[in-house]
Write a protein that binds this DNA or RNA. Structure first.
Lengths: 379, 379
DNA sequence: GTCCACAATGAATCTAATA
DNA sequence: ATATTAGATTCATTGTGGA
């Protein structure tokens, strides 16, 4: 329906017609394929594109947690592509339309994981987009790697790009610095994954498998748009972009193919309230606490593998090993806390204050080294 | 000089010749172009490649068009698309050699920033490499964005990949978990940038513009190699990879074109002290320990036939049989794993941690008996 | 109503050895 | 090659139900 009509309209529109003269479907959802729907929008007519395209995960079989429960994976058809070539063609197609509809000073954000983000990034560059930053969303509570086969996949990547090298773009530097306790906003952002009351559910089931946290969109829109700007999301899903745009006083256009997602998004956005000041505070994640693992001191050569540690009374001795574990002369090994507890026959032990190193003949707790490390690395 | 000779040698080597018969230039720097130097190494002969490729496109006369033809950067008219094509050709060339020299179960690490990492990642996938993780190096003390025009560029990205989807690879899961205070190591790592005494300087100037911190390489090598493995760094620079490999008891081969960097690297690596073997020991995964069959515990009277086992909550009960199988009251019999899975209606179960025996009124997992047996029988 | 124990779950490319 | 078996493997947060 809509899609075909929209395509026809786009084709008959004269390119030199000023964008303002063509009405945009502001604050609406276009239920159609993203390329077809974007084709219906005029050239150079929108300020921002935020895109959360399919990641092209290539999952194997079923996965179970150590407790035997089943992991609910993303198995939807919209995430299936036969080959990288097919995914690249899809990416080029929607990026080309995104480039066309953006105003000269507009910018684009794309989020992805290692499965797709490298292909997306290369395609962006190939189409002439100029990358301004890559941003890392550090998940405060990622799903663990249950089988212990790799590093916990604890982040996703966003790319922010302008239409070209010389383009002027909106960056609300001051707002970002204020948001970050008067320090420049960095390229690594920490947010929890979307859950709790924010997560849309129906009959106890999540409505969308990959709903993004509103805090993420909040920062994106606050950083790179002005009030009244037009934000297009070609993979609208359940409308996080629309809900946050409404709260921040930006116009939005959502493009989504699945009727179920569209319905959930409409309901959600209607319930969203324009921003009041108190909401701002709750959107900010607490500043990451500087926590130092003992192994980090070994990696950074504050203590070398092979070094000897003792307790304050030199009754217990241990040797530092390459991975930050300790080995006692009796052969027992473990973390600084675990070994301290074992040797004392105690249920627990604070290894930072229990273990000491010798410095100029004086025993000092290894906590001293941790403080030194923090002083050297914290701004 | 060397490069040409090496190429000639590589071309005359018979492919079916076992890798061991060809001597590798272990613990040496090859002063040559990286593609030429890798061409001189045998197929499937190294365990790890760590690469920190340039992204500034100052490739020093090594620019190629996508068809392989050479480009004169001074006289040719370049636009950014030609530049990307040239960078991609360069990337494909060295990645192809890296793929060839890696053993079937070897892995590759590449570090980069948003300028080049998306092209490198896409090339890796196109060459058949299978991405295992992307890792974010969060800089504790990045350079601020002085003009306030973008987010502070506070991280770099590493990609870790195997030779293919089905390849086995080395991942020292337990050592990483130990290094991170008994939590799974995540995909975001925080390190300070290289400075202080670690930063190589000459006449007050830094010797290399992008010297990487040794802590970063320490974690990379500890995670993905075993002692004695061979690590190749095709963009050796001032030899961080070599210095850390030497400390950790890994062999290294450095490839570097600039004589000044080579000289600095040699001096630096000679000064690096290798760790002794006991310090090198890391926490081992149970996977690396010898297997013990449950029946062996019965044979050795650690548990007697007829003994009663229960789960931790005493919900499930079973009786030990003479052959090391278990019998449930309902009549179901099977191995410790199979019966645990059957009774819980789970796809799988680790019988060692599921089943418990009572010792002085306290329930203990039968894994405790296995550990006792291992301690008593291992030298 | 409060506290505590336990269960549920999230963009995940998630085993290895032997028959 | 495929099937079977042994056995290794999880973190932060939210929701729920009983005491």
């Amino acid at each position: 329906m809509g899609a075909v009509q929209l395509v026809a309209r786009a084709r008959t529109r004269k390119p030199e017609q000023p964008a303002e003269a063509v009405s945009l479907p502001l604050d609406q959802i276009v239920m159609a394929d993203c390329v077809a729907a974007m084709r219906a929008l005029p050239d150079a007519s929108v300020d921002l594109v935020f895109a959360d395209p399919p990641y092209n995960l290539q999952l194997g079989g079923e996965l179970f947690r150590p407790d035997g429960s089943h992991v609910d994976a993303v198995t939807d058809d919209w995430d299936k592509f036969d080959t990288f070539a097919a995914y690249d063609a899809f990416t080029r197609a929607w990026l080309a339309e995104a480039h066309r509809i953006l105003k000269p000073n507009g910018t684009i954000w794309v989020i992805g994981s290692y499965h797709n983000i490298f292909r997306v990034g290369a395609s962006l560059q190939d189409q002439g987009f100029w990358i301004l930053n890559d941003i890392v969303w550090r998940k405060a509570n990622p799903m663990p790697n249950f089988k212990g086969t790799r590093f916990t996949n604890a982040h996703e990547t966003l790319i922010w790009a302008s239409k070209g090298e010389k383009a002027k773009y909106t960056f609300n530097y001051r707002a970002m610095k204020t948001l970050n306790d008067e320090l420049q906003m960095r390229s690594d952002w920490e947010f929890p994954i979307c859950g709790g009351g924010e997560r849309l559910k129906k009959d106890g089931q999540k409505v969308h498998p990959t709903q993004k946290p509103e805090a993420l969109l909040y920062r994106v829109l606050l950083a790179s748009t002005k009030p009244g700007d037009v934000v297009v999301d070609p993979f609208f899903g359940t409308g996080t972009t629309g809900a946050v745009a409404k709260r921040l006083g930006r116009h939005w256009i959502g493009i989504e193919r699945e009727p179920g997602y569209c319905a959930a998004a409409i309901e959600r956005i209607e319930a969203a309230l324009p921003l009041d000041e108190s909401a701002l505070a709750t959107m900010q994640s607490p500043r990451a606490q500087p926590k130092v693992a003992f192994g980090v001191l070994v990696e950074n050569a504050y203590l070398l593998p092979g070094a000897t540690l003792t307790c304050a009374k030199r009754r217990h001795v241990a040797t530092v090993r390459a991975d930050g574990s300790l080995a006692a002369p009796c052969g027992t090994v473990g973390s600084i806390h675990k070994l301290g507890a074992t040797l004392q026959n105690a249920p627990a032990c604070n290894g930072w204050t229990f273990w000491h190193y010798e410095d100029a003949g004086v025993l000092k707790p290894i906590d001293t080294l941790r403080q030194t490390y923090l002083l050297a690395t914290q701004p």
